[in-house]
Simulated scan of single mutants.
Amino acid sequence: MNEGADEAGWDVQPGDEIAPLVEAVGRLLKVCREAAGMRAADFGDVMGYGEDMIRKMERGQRIPRPEFLDRADTVLKAQGHLRAFMEDMRKAQYPKKVRELADLEGRAVELLMYGNHNIHGLLQTPEYATALFEMTQPPLSPSVIEREVGARMARKSIFERDPAPALSFVQEQVTLERPYGGEAVLRRQLENLLRVGQLRNVTIQVMPTQRREHAGTQGLIQMLKFVDGTGIGRSDGAFNGRPVSTPRDLRILELRYGMIRAQALPPGESLAFIEQVLGRL
């Protein structure tokens, strides 16, 4: 992961499949600049970047931010040709693993997720996600944290899909009580859980700490099911933590998740429990 990013964008990682797209955008940027009669150095001065940065973007070595393309389109009088790639670059700037996960989530018709350490990423507020990334060791640079948080928030478009997928979350009680980022951050996070929990296609359940039997002792579980009957899943304590997709392996995870759901509080009681935790803050 590149930590030398600045406001112009991020370096393209070797072997990344988005490299051809970034190169094409870079060539278009150069064509527009030359058509406007501007040298790279002059264009950089107007945009607030050095000539070397402009050259890197034109060579496809640096992913330009959507905001950069928006302003460049105006400066170079590109008539919308650069702005047309803003959404593509918005997706391209996210880490490869996040793009791959977002693609899977975008195709899933059902998601099953058990979290035992923190609130699941799809349920996180920007402040909560930022607090988590700020605790990463070794420390991440501010620009990398911004990139990771932006990518995580972009995945939440899954809640706006039509038809909507069925989303099931089971959260350990401790994840609702540990104040990552402070009590104000936790308060907004719990309020977000209550809002999302009201959606008809979303089920949020709480696993009380006092439970004497617990099928989730082997850790995190995530499963995604697709319309063709296939799926993919992962658990920290099964299959060496590797993603699995065979019917047999998925059945093991599904049985384990089903038991976790049965042992957790029902959805209505879970939302009431979250309200109680919120009221104590």
Rank of each mutant, 00 (worst) to 15 (best):
M207L: 12
D249R: 13
F239R: 06
H214E: 05
K225N: 07
L167P: 01
L190V: 02
R234A: 03
R256N: 11
R261S: 11
L176Q: 01
R248E: 15
R251L: 11
R256F: 01
T246L: 05
L253S: 03
V196H: 01
F169N: 02
R200P: 04
T246S: 14
G231M: 05
V244H: 08
L190I: 00
E177D: 04
V202C: 15
V206L: 04
I221C: 00
Q173N: 04
I252S: 14
R248V: 06
K225R: 14
L220N: 07
Q198M: 10
G258F: 04
R195A: 10
R234L: 14
R256P: 05
E254Q: 12
L255K: 11
L253A: 07
Q222N: 10
A264M: 07
Q171D: 01
E177G: 02
Y180N: 11
I252Q: 15
Y180M: 09
V244A: 09
G241D: 10
G231T: 05
S245H: 11
T203L: 10
E172I: 05
H214T: 05
P247R: 04
V244F: 06
G219F: 05
R212N: 14
T230C: 04
N201G: 06
T246C: 05
I252M: 15
S168L: 13
M259R: 15
V185G: 11
Q173H: 07
R256D: 11
L224V: 04
T203E: 13
T209M: 15
R234G: 06
I221Y: 00
Q171F: 00
V185F: 09
I204F: 03
L193W: 03
L250A: 09
L194V: 03
L186D: 00
T203R: 13
L193R: 00
R248Y: 09
A238L: 14
M259V: 15
V227S: 11
V206Q: 00
G216H: 00
A264R: 07
N192Y: 03
R187C: 08
L190Q: 00
F169A: 08
N240K: 13
V185M: 10
Q171C: 08
R212D: 14
Q218F: 08
D228M: 01
G233V: 04
G231S: 06
R261G: 06
M223W: 01
P247K: 05
T230D: 07
P165M: 00
E213N: 14
G216A: 01
Q218G: 08
M259T: 14
S245D: 15
A184F: 08
Q263N: 10
R234Q: 12
R261E: 13
T246H: 03
R234F: 05
F169H: 02
V206K: 03
R256H: 08
R234C: 12
I204W: 04
T217H: 10
T203F: 04
R188H: 04
A262P: 06
